[in-house]
Design a binder for these strands. Sequence first.
DNA 1: ATCCCTGCAAACGCTTTGCACATGA
DNA 2: TCATGTGCAAAGCGTTTGCAGGGAT
Lengths: 149, 149
Amino acid sequence: MNPQNIEKVKEVFSKFLEEKQFRKTPERFAIVDEIYSIKEHFNAQWLYGRMKERNYRVSKATVYNTLDVLLEAKLIRKHHYGDEQQIFYEKSYFDKQHDHIIMMDSGEIIEFCDPRIQTIKQTMEDIFGIEIESHSLYFYAKKKNTSNN
Amino acid sequence: MNPQNIEKVKEVFSKFLEEKQFRKTPERFAIVDEIYSIKEHFNAQWLYGRMKERNYRVSKATVYNTLDVLLEAKLIRKHHYGDEQQIFYEKSYFDKQHDHIIMMDSGEIIEFCDPRIQTIKQTMEDIFGIEIESHSLYFYAKKKNTSNN
DNA sequence: ATCCCTGCAAACGCTTTGCACATGA
DNA sequence: TCATGTGCAAAGCGTTTGCAGGGAT
């Protein structure tokens, strides 16, 4: 992600922290910096390790805490998929909502958008009289033409 | 679930074990018995605790192992949702495929079926030239009319 | 008689917590 | 100043593993 985009994200984050009366600590901004330099999905441990490696002085507690704050600020999204017990995150600012296809053989993750998911959501809201705040959708797939059938 | 249905499930399981040349141990059938007497979603720990409570002599290792076998036999389904790090299961024989709405306030889980998910799946298979084996879809919702806005 | 399956306990990996210190407001 | 945020280490919790003994085939 290019530098002025990261600045934009930090600005949004800064405003969020102000509104919530949370403190603007250097650790929090350092973590945003790191996260927004990552393309793929990552988990808390991995992020912590990466920051240690790069000689940031952060603790696991702070990483976990900041991830929660960023989630609340909607600057990251949370994921659960496959057999993993762990939670993955991805940056979400500048991205449009999307869902994922998990390639079971390679582990590759494909993003996609399909408007029909919104129509299903709408139907469910009407049927059950509820308000759907979010959804998670994963397809688990294999490459075609493996010629084993 | 009524007794003859459980018998039917055990029969299917028995056949599966034969085909795979897995052993028909009493523990495995005891676990099926338990699982098919549970309505809701459950996790491995909880199932283990429940069996202990009822004086079955099973170990955690066996519970986890059997859950994997039952998954392979498609007699249960696996779930991941919300903030839970843990894996939930539900019996799946006699049930048709369905997805879930998680009520965020009460924890209630609503099941639903919508054929449009299949059409989305089809589209993705065509676009990416893949074969989708399974999917997971959760909606996270709140009751309407809470009048707090 | 095999060797798969089981029980038990210890190890694992990710996350959370407790506490003392540091620091943003 | 002082409550919030941080670092560190230990604890928590669901799951997995290693190993010795047991039971299905």
